[in-house]
């Protein structure tokens, strides 16, 4: 098992580095000159050339990537210019390991940007995750147990309605009606726990997390319903009944254990995918998270930030994959890794 985890983590790291290379290749292949975006209104060819050199965009993509990878392990400095460092050390930004690059547009190390934006996205993802897991799995179980009744149809049908609408529609709908028109909830704005305490933090998360949860809830209701129904047909449930167990124990110990294992897999992967930022939800609610930052970076040709966020998101997805696989061996005794 330990050897398996080590192997998976090593493979994951290789994958992350490969993804950074792919992102850079795409970026370098673009016909737009990224240095132009760092140069401002009073740009002269000399200044442009100087910026391009400072950013490393004059190098071939592979050596840019090698520099970047080295920075992750040993740190780096921006711009990398020994002559400048001697003459004007105050213009050199230090970027200690793990260095994810330096954003010329915002004049900050990428890592600082990510550290600032990640809690926003992570809060949103986790809050939404908790909402859709409780509601989705719970309603899915209820629908399965009441299969074919009005309750079942109402649950599955209404979930489908939310699933059918685009995220921005649901988000704006909730925003306009619940917050602005009816004033049932305060207008959402992100407040970190450090700034406003847990209360304000949760208040700010309510609507965006609800929007995100509503998008995911339908899938979870249907999955849970299907898996519970499948589990209910298993022979081992008849055994449990024949033993004389009470129906509550049959449901919670025997039915759900079998039914919810596959849900855990899907849930882990979905959460991993969301931790790296949500683009539309953050946009609708004006949340300054990773998703929004990534869009900004991509549209302003800020390569270091784009690569940094891609890597963070990829790390979450890959980690979630490993965690889910390991978790599976813990949940299901039949699964063994070697």
């Amino acid at each position: 098992m330990f050897a398996y985890i080590v192997r998976r983590v090593a493979a994951g790291m290789v994958m992350i580095l490969a993804m950074s290379l792919v992102t850079m290749v795409l970026f370098f292949a673009s016909p737009v000159d990224p240095a132009r975006y760092t140069c401002g209104k009073n740009c002269t060819p000399e200044l442009l050339e100087q910026n391009r050199k400072a950013l490393g965009y004059d190098q071939p993509v592979l050596s840019y990537w090698v520099d970047f990878t080295k920075g992750i392990f040993v740190g780096s400095e921006f711009p990398k210019d020994p002559a400048l460092k001697k003459s004007a050390p105050e213009t050199i930004a230090d970027c200690p390991a793990p260095c994810l690059g330096y954003s010329p547009q915002s004049s900050r190390p990428v890592r600082d940007i990510i550290v600032e934006k990640l809690p926003v996205s992570a809060s949103l993802a986790i809050a939404a995750f908790i909402m859709w897991m409780i509601a989705g799995v719970g309603l899915g179980i209820v629908a399965a147990l009441r299969k074919g009744t009005l309750v079942d149809r109402a649950i599955v049908g209404s979930a489908l309605v939310f699933y059918a609408f685009p995220t921005f529609f649901i988000g704006l709908g909730l925003y306009v009606f619940l917050a602005l028109k009816w004033g049932i909830v305060p207008v959402p704005a992100y407040t970190s726990i450090a700034d406003g305490g847990v209360g304000l933090w949760l208040q700010g998360l309510l609507l965006p997390a609800l929007t995100l949860a509503l998008v995911y809830i339908a899938g979870y209701i249907r999955l849970t319903r299907a898996f519970v129904l499948e589990a209910k047909g298993e022979d081992y449930l008849r055994t449990a009944q024949a033993k004389g167990l009470k129906s509550g124990r049959i449901l919670f110990k025997h039915t759900l254990r079998g039914a919810l294992t596959p849900i855990a897999t899907v849930a882990g992967l979905d959460l991993g995918g969301l931790l790296g930022g949500t683009i539309i939800t953050e946009q609708v609610f004006n949340y300054d998270g990773l998703g929004r930052t990534a869009v900004m970076a991509a549209t302003t040709y800020d390569l270091p930030v784009t690569v940094g966020i891609v890597l963070v998101a990829a790390t979450f997805v890959i980690t979630a994959n490993i965690v889910v696989d390991v978790l599976y061996a813990v949940i299901d005794p039949r699964v063994k890794y070697s």
């Binding site: 081992y236 079998g258 949940i331 299901d332």
Partner: peptide, 10 residues
């Protein structure tokens, strides 16, 4: 069928 009649997770 004792394989399917016993719960695989316990």
């Amino acid at each position: 069928d004792p394989l399917s009649a016993l719960h695989p997770y316990y």
